[in-house]
């Protein structure tokens, strides 16, 4: 347990770097550009749609790329630098290393979401929007964190699967693009029309997009969407965690120089 906590502390410290700061500021600036351009600065908090879009638009568009870019090399970089070999020959097990990374990803998701919502709230304060904004921001912290966590888990899994950081980055970005709500919707629509599936089924399939899960988790779209969102989040978390642990534990630690 002590070793896992040490790894968690180390991984968190490593994640909270210039890249984290850059991605956070970029997302906040993108959101503030949207707030200013769309006129939401006067309307946020007045109705649910504005409250949702007024805080999460940046994540609907770039959330996948932002979150994946923070985690795509969590394992692959350590493998390339051979630090993984040293960790594994220093009385640490793969389970401990994976648990440390998982805990760091969870902490990162919560911290990123908290800071993001805080900074967006400050932007609204600059535009002199009403006090309801703080309540909305607090309401959005967990759904946004859930979206980041799903993509972080995906990033962890991809960084185990693809041993080179470069390949992992390319695949991460490709996954991020495919899972963007608008693009993913087109895929789902096409598949459902091709298979002649009902609307209810296509709506359910849409929850494979983490952005839809985030939308469901806000509770703005009704209790049934909230429950589906919770279910989809749990499925994603369990499946990706199991895949991440299983693949990592069963892989040989090959050398990448030879």
């Amino acid at each position: 347990m002590k070793e896992t906590f040490l790894l968690f502390k180390r991984d968190l410290k490593r994640i909270l770097n210039k890249r984290f700061l850059f991605v956070l500021l970029f997302m906040v600036l993108f959101q503030s550009w949207f707030i200013r351009g769309s006129g939401y600065k006067d309307k946020a908090g007045q109705n649910f749609e504005f409250s949702y879009m007024g805080f999460t638009f940046a994540f609907l568009i770039l959330g996948s790329l932002a979150a994946l870019s923070l985690n795509f090399d969590a394992i692959s970089k350590e493998r390339q630098n051979k630090v993984m070999d040293l960790l594994l020959t220093s009385s640490l097990s793969k389970t401990q290393i994976a648990t440390g990374k998982l805990m760091a990803s969870l902490a990162l998701s919560l911290l990123f979401s908290l800071l993001y919502n805080l900074l967006v709230t400050l932007i609204y304060c600059l535009f002199r929007t009403g006090g309801a904004v703080i309540r909305v921001a607090l309401h959005n912290v967990l759904p946004v964190a859930a979206l980041i966590f799903i993509y972080s888990l995906m990033g962890l899994f991809l960084s185990v699967l693809f041993r080179s950081s470069r390949t992992s980055f390319i695949v991460s970005m490709a996954c991020g693009l495919i899972l963007m709500p608008r693009i993913f919707e087109m895929f789902v629509d096409g598949i459902c029309k091709g298979l002649k599936l009902e609307n209810a089924v296509s709506n359910l399939i849409m929850f494979a997009s983490p952005a839809m899960i985030m939308s469901g988790l806000t509770g703005y779209n009704g209790a049934s969407n909230l429950l589906t969102g919770i279910g989809a989040f749990l499925i994603y978390t369990v499946v990706l965690t199991v895949l991440f642990f299983t693949v990592f534990r069963n892989q040989d630690e090959k050398s990448y120089n030879e």
Binding site: V83, D85, T89
Partner: peptide, 17 residues
């Protein structure tokens, strides 16, 4: 027996920061 052995991989690099 990882506590009893030390392994230095080829071309290893620690986090430079």
């Amino acid at each position: 027996i990882s506590a009893r052995i030390g392994f230095l991989p080829q071309n290893m690099r620690f986090d430079e920061n």
